[in-house]
């Protein structure tokens, strides 16, 4: 019998929606899979701004609350 090892998941809240992601997922992975364009967003994690340059190295911790604002053109 072959065992399938599933990596444990953590829950994160993104703009009010709870999402389960595998442990070790970065913010860049998550926001990419949710369809956000990284060049047009600002991201806050538990009340602190997370610079876009850090999204690729920032690993999600269970229970965090992420707020993402996407901008469209016009001003």
């Amino acid at each position: 019998m072959r065992m399938v090892m599933e990596s444990p998941c953590v829950a994160v809240t993104v703009n009010g929606k709870v999402i389960e992601v595998p442990e070790g997922t970065t913010l860049a992975d998550l926001l990419g899979s949710e369809g956000y364009d990284r060049s047009r967003i600002a991201v806050e994690v538990d009340g602190d701004i997370c610079p876009r340059a850090d999204l690729g190295s920032r690993v999600i911790r269970g229970g965090e609350t992420v707020e993402v604002v996407s901008f469209v053109g016009g001003g």
Binding site: S39, R40, I41, A42, E44, I49, P51, R52, V69, S70, F71, V72, G73, G74, G75
Partner: peptide
């Protein structure tokens, strides 16, 4: 007006501790 410039500026100002009123979608 440009969405990438908006994101850059909002991120920069929030990181520096400012209170910001932005606009998107008009």
């Amino acid at each position: 007006d440009d969405p990438e410039s908006k994101a850059m500026l909002v991120e920069t100002l929030l990181e520096a501790g400012f209170t910001v009123v932005a606009c998107s979608g008009m």
